[in-house]
Design a binder for these strands. Structure first.
Lengths: 216, 216
DNA sequence: GTCTGAGTTTACCAAATGGTAAAAAAGGCA
DNA sequence: TGCCTTTTTTACCATTTGGTAAACTCAGAC
């Protein structure tokens, strides 16, 4: 069989039974993990299958037994991480105090930047270069969520619960500031001597910044 | 002669007479321009000498007549652009109203993002991947300037001219927000329908954000 | 046990890519 | 014009890299 990897993949349009063997689950996870490491630190073109294979502890042809090719790995990685990456934004919504909701979102984004900097850099790399393998995701995944949350924010502002400002710009500035700490880590580390103290300062700073901006 | 490019380059430690012929000036400029275009949109490893050569309207060996290699082009590009990129920060200093000084800096950074998005993405690409070819520049170029301006900001805050906040965090958040519009252009364009209106909104938003943050 | 298919490895290949040698062409100047 | 230097092109090369073929190994069902 030339490409047996076709068969065991259930999550396509045809609802094939999900017969992922233990070995497949384990190795696919290993590959995803290695790919995240390599793609996030070198970008798509800078990453090589050999690097991913070494990082995963597998051979290159073995990698290609599980995935159709380099691009397929990258795309699947983006797909798999997109949901988790947007989870904090999903959680922000009516049902709580507006200011608390927004500041909680900001804090969660900061935690994501600290705990999952590779994910942040993966997306940053991709978007920086024009999002060539993520175009559809931006349109169908991010855009609707963005619009929905803009509406929520606009509503809060109309009710006088938050100071009036452009909701879209607000969201983008939250992303910019919070993800900066992960994406520009190399620069931050040069400028801020004590990483731990710097992180605490960063948290206070972004909290203060958005609190002041949104206090009516 | 194997590498005649050694001779006509004056800006090394030895202060050789700068005998750059018209042709050299013109072609080196063409190459720098092309390299900026290609490196900024594909990253270092994603860029190829062939792409740069095509973009510059020269042949690949001809490129290598003027520069020692791919890496030399990249490094020289970073060197050449660093100064201009930091110019707005140099201008921010005592001698004006503190709030105006900071907000002017913010506005200038926004203008840079709009007018020179390639420069922004070039640096972003480099830093994202750990600044492997820019380490010294961060230490010797950026760090001192950063510390100097932090001191200026701290002084203004101590005088009560600006609200107290961490000066370093302030500077980094200014960079994050302003450069975001250039670096994440592909994403911004998906989320914001009208680019022109979006740009105006962005300018108002960042002005308001930092004004509120810094108002004592 | 043994037989079948899933999983892995060895040995490759073709294209892309950074770089070089050397000849040819183009300037520039007496 | 003739002569020397600078610039450009043509024809290569070695390495890297994504990917494949086919042999081989191993796990589990019977």
């Amino acid at each position: 069989m030339t490409h047996p990897a076709r068969k065991p993949r259930p999550e396509e349009e045809t609802p094939q039974p999900k017969k992922l063997s233990r070995i497949q689950v384990r190795n696919r996870r290993k590959i995803m993990n290695a790919a995240l490491e390599v793609f996030s630190s070198h970008g798509y073109r800078g990453a090589t299958l050999d690097q991913i294979a070494t990082e995963a502890g597998l051979s290159k042809p073995n990698i290609l037994y599980y995935f159709e090719g380099k691009e397929a790995i990258h795309v699947e990685l983006l797909n798999a991480l997109m949901f988790n990456w947007l989870a904090p934004l999903h959680k922000m919504g009516p049902g709580g105090d507006p200011m608390t909701e927004v500041l909680t979102y900001v804090r969660r984004k900061m935690e994501m930047s600290r705990q999952y900097p590779r994910e942040s850099r993966l997306f940053a790399n991709e978007v920086l270069q024009g999002a060539p393998r993520m175009g559809p995701h931006l349109e169908t995944g991010l855009k609707p969520l963005f619009d929905e949350k803009c509406a929520v924010l606009a509503d809060w502002m109309a009710q006088g619960k938050l100071a009036k400002t452009d909701p879209g710009q607000l969201l983008m500035s939250i992303w910019a500031v919070t993800q900066h700490y992960a994406d520009f880590d190399a620069q931050v580390n040069v400028l801020i001597a004590d990483a731990d103290a710097g992180w605490k300062a960063a948290n206070s700073h972004v909290d203060l910044m958005f609190r002041k901006l949104l206090t009516p």
